[in-house]
């Protein structure tokens, strides 16, 4: 299952997409520790796979929470994306 956490509002699209089929094979879940804002957690999806999920309370504010990892110029690689060995995480913005 591919899950898109985030939202679309009038200012843009802010989605973090997780491919559960790739994520569920990962034991480490290094992304959870890599995020400086601790927005991820490990949980079971509807089909019983252990996957990384974006916490409920931050889903509607990703644009703001992720802002520090996304400076307007010279953006470095995102820590969560770098930490994922399976390329399961993508950001839409």
């Amino acid at each position: 299952m591919i899950v898109h956490y985030g939202y679309l509002d009038a200012s843009g699209e802010y989605f973090i997409t997780v491919d559960d089929s790739k994520c569920s094979v990962c034991i480490e879940k290094g992304c959870i520790k890599a995020c400086p804002k601790s927005i991820f957690m490990e949980s079971e999806n509807d089909y019983g796979e252990k996957v990384m999920m974006v916490k409920d309370e931050v889903r509607k504010m990703l644009k703001y929470i992720c802002a520090e990892c996304k400076p307007s110029v010279n953006r470095p690689p995102l820590p969560c994306v770098t930490a994922c060995p399976y390329d399961a995480i993508t950001h839409s913005w």
Binding site: K63, Y64, I65, A67, E68, K70, P71, S72
Partner: peptide, 12 residues
């Protein structure tokens, strides 16, 4: 304020 502040942090 928190929304404006996080936008501002994007330009350091």
């Amino acid at each position: 304020a928190s929304r404006i502040a996080s936008m501002a942090r994007r330009v350091k």
